[in-house]
Amino acid sequence: MGEQEGLEELFRTSETDLYGEELTPKQKRIVEAAIQMFSEKGYSSSSTSEIAKRAKVAEGTIFRHYKTKKELLLAIVTPVMSNLLAPFIIRDLDKVLSQNYKCYEDFLTAIVKNRQTFIEKHISIVKILLQEIPFHNELRSQFIERIGKEVYNRLEAIVTHFQDKGELIEMPTQAAIRLTATSIGGFLLTRYILLPDNDWDDEEELKRTIHFIMNGMKAR
């Protein structure tokens, strides 16, 4: 499924605005244009006049629906977080987290491939989240509450399982999750955000990333 289909899924799962009213065709065009602009230029560098031009509406139309540019950002991210990302990530990760893996390497391979599929489908939204969460307390709080806590609890159980089996060195579970997540996150961030046009060999990069994690965490 491509990115355009990902946007259509967003609209199907979030047919109302921040106030519970049904989105109009113009609002959908505004939201889609804002997603494109925020993804390409970042929130701070995108103007409402540029968004209006891309959406083919008057700038005043944006402010009839959204009082500020910040409210437009929240109108995109809040339903995305609540209706699409949170349930999709949890449901989608369940396919990975609920499996019985022979070893931690197999689990890491499955979860990275799972996340690659998700990013490729929702690359613009992922860019906005990565760019804006560090700078907006509202978005950070939403992410932690609706996604972060649930995912962390599931990862904690898996790491503890492999530690109990003697496959991973003894260390605080939080540290093991952080080291795993930063290694995988660094690969995905570089692959899709920082250097997407590089000549990537995904299979080899995945093997290198997992090798790096396991050499530092595997029991000897």
Rank of each mutant, 00 (worst) to 15 (best):
R140K: 11
I119N: 01
L23Q: 05
I90Y: 10
E120F: 02
V96Y: 05
I111N: 07
L72Y: 06
L155G: 15
R191N: 08
L188F: 13
S124V: 04
I184F: 02
R208V: 12
Q131V: 00
L72H: 01
R115M: 11
E21D: 13
D197K: 15
L129K: 00
G2Q: 11
K53H: 09
V96R: 03
D92E: 12
V31K: 02
I193S: 01
D199E: 11
L85Q: 09
M171Q: 12
G216N: 10
H65K: 01
S141F: 14
R29D: 04
F38N: 03
F187Q: 10
G2T: 13
R220G: 06
A58S: 07
A176M: 12
T68A: 01
Y152F: 15
F143G: 05
T109D: 14
K149T: 11
M1R: 03
D106C: 13
S44I: 10
Q174L: 08
A52C: 03
G185M: 06
K28E: 06
N83I: 03
M1C: 02
K67I: 06
R91L: 14
F11K: 00
M81S: 05
A176N: 06
D106T: 13
Q27L: 04
E21H: 09
R154A: 06
Q174A: 12
H65Y: 14
E150Y: 13
T117I: 06
M1K: 09
A219F: 10
L168Y: 04
F107K: 07
S98N: 12
D106W: 02
E138F: 08
R91D: 14
R178M: 15
A176S: 06
I144D: 11
V31S: 02
K69D: 02
K121Q: 13
L188I: 09
I158G: 07
P134G: 05
R154C: 07
R220L: 11
P134F: 05
L97R: 11
M81W: 01
R64I: 03
L179G: 01
G6P: 00
L188H: 11
C103L: 08
L74K: 05
D92H: 15
L84C: 04
K218R: 15
G60I: 04
L188Y: 08
L73V: 04
I193L: 15
I119M: 07
T78L: 06
L74I: 08
F118M: 13
F118Y: 12
T78F: 00
E8Q: 06
F38S: 02
Q116H: 12
R191H: 09
T180R: 13
Y152N: 10
F143E: 07
D106R: 14
E204A: 15
E50R: 08
V151W: 07
T109A: 11
Y19M: 00
A52K: 02
N215T: 10
F135G: 02
I90K: 14
T48M: 05
T24K: 01
V96D: 09
D17Q: 01
L179D: 08
I133P: 04
I35Q: 05
E15Y: 01
V126D: 03
Q99F: 04
E3R: 07
V77I: 12
Q142M: 15
E8R: 01
T78P: 00
I62R: 00
N198K: 15
M217Q: 12
K70M: 03
Y19H: 10
Q99Y: 08
Q4M: 07
N198Y: 12
V159N: 08
H161N: 14
K121P: 00
L206I: 08
